[in-house]
């Protein structure tokens, strides 16, 4: 954007806001016109030129946001390696500038953006996309709202014929995933400080992330039918409809284990209410 010597406060801020988000070093890239505009706004001093003063803020913008993404996406960072991770982080930040007041939200749109991204280094994309979703799941589960789990006495009062139309409400921190690779094992290895291998064979994996009583985020492996059931229930389906959908994927599992799954979820505090038809 162009700037005038009598620019208003809003114009100065808009000019600098665009300047510090530029991906290239201002000193290396500034053409005569850009440098002239920077000099129109920034005075410099006897040690630093106006461009060098602006460059301090531009560099800090990228370092701060890259570091924040690196901290929030440890498995993705490890999988891609430093250079590829930084390249992707810059592309993401350029496409979707940080818009929330909290850095905690910086990466919320990244996994969905990566789902559409087509320029991964050779062969890294499929696992990278799954790791991004898993990393984000840990962040959002960590400080999601908490609701009191449903009381066993309430469950006991539900009439048998009310269960098919019942809607089971789940803990807001619960996250469920279906992956084509065992990315959860990879992430744990990274968190332990191991250096995982660069190959991750295909292995269908269904997992849940949930916040335990210790308020840490834990994971639980799910059966395919259990995963499908939770996805449906989280979307607001009745129990009978959710079972129908899950049955299509895992007929034996759903029929044989539904009761066990429900009690397992309740023990872990995943069920916060059961709403029946009046």
């Amino acid at each position: 954007m162009s700037i005038q010597p009598d620019a208003t406060l809003a114009e100065i801020q808009a000019f600098l806001g665009a300047l510090v988000r530029r991906s290239d070093n201002l000193g290396a890239s500034a053409n005569v016109d850009a440098e002239a505009e920077i000099r129109m706004v920034i005075a410099g001093n006897d040690r630093l030129t106006p461009v060098q003063q602006a460059e301090i803020y531009r560099e800090q913008f990228w370092l701060r946001h890259r570091d924040s993404l690196d901290e929030d996406f440890p498995a993705l960072s490890s999988w891609l390696g430093q250079d590829a991770f930084e390249c992707l982080a810059r592309a993401y930040l350029a496409a979707i500038p940080p818009s929330s007041w909290t850095l905690r939200d910086l990466g919320v749109a990244w996994p969905a953006w990566l789902d559409q991204y087509e320029h991964f280094p050779s062969g890294l994309g499929p696992v990278a996309r799954e790791l991004a979703h898993l990393d984000l799941g840990f962040i959002t589960a960590f400080d999601a709202p908490a609701r009191v789990p449903v009381h066993a006495e309430k469950v006991a009062t539900i009439a048998e014929d009310a269960w098919p139309d019942a809607r089971i409400l789940l803990q807001p921190s619960l996250r469920v995933f279906a992956f084509k690779h065992a990315v959860n094992g990879y992430r744990w290895a990274v968190r332990r400080g191991d250096i995982p291998g660069s190959l991750l064979p295909a292995k269908p994996t269904w997992i849940a992330l949930y916040r335990g009583e210790d308020l840490r985020v834990h994971e639980a492996e799910l059966a395919v039918g259990e995963h499908a059931l939770l996805v449906q229930l989280a979307a607001g389906a009745t129990l009978s409809y959710a079972c129908e959908q899950a049955n299509a994927l895992d007929p034996e599992g759903v029929e044989a284990q539904l009761g066990g799954w429900l009690s397992h979820w309740a023990r872990r505090g995943w069920v916060v209410d059961i709403v029946t038809k009046p």
């Binding site: 808009a14 510090v20 803020y57 940080p98 850095l103």
Partner: peptide, 10 residues
């Protein structure tokens, strides 16, 4: 600025 939070003390 409109459309972006710089997370810096400008």
């Amino acid at each position: 600025v409109p459309g972006a939070d710089l997370h810096d003390l400008m």
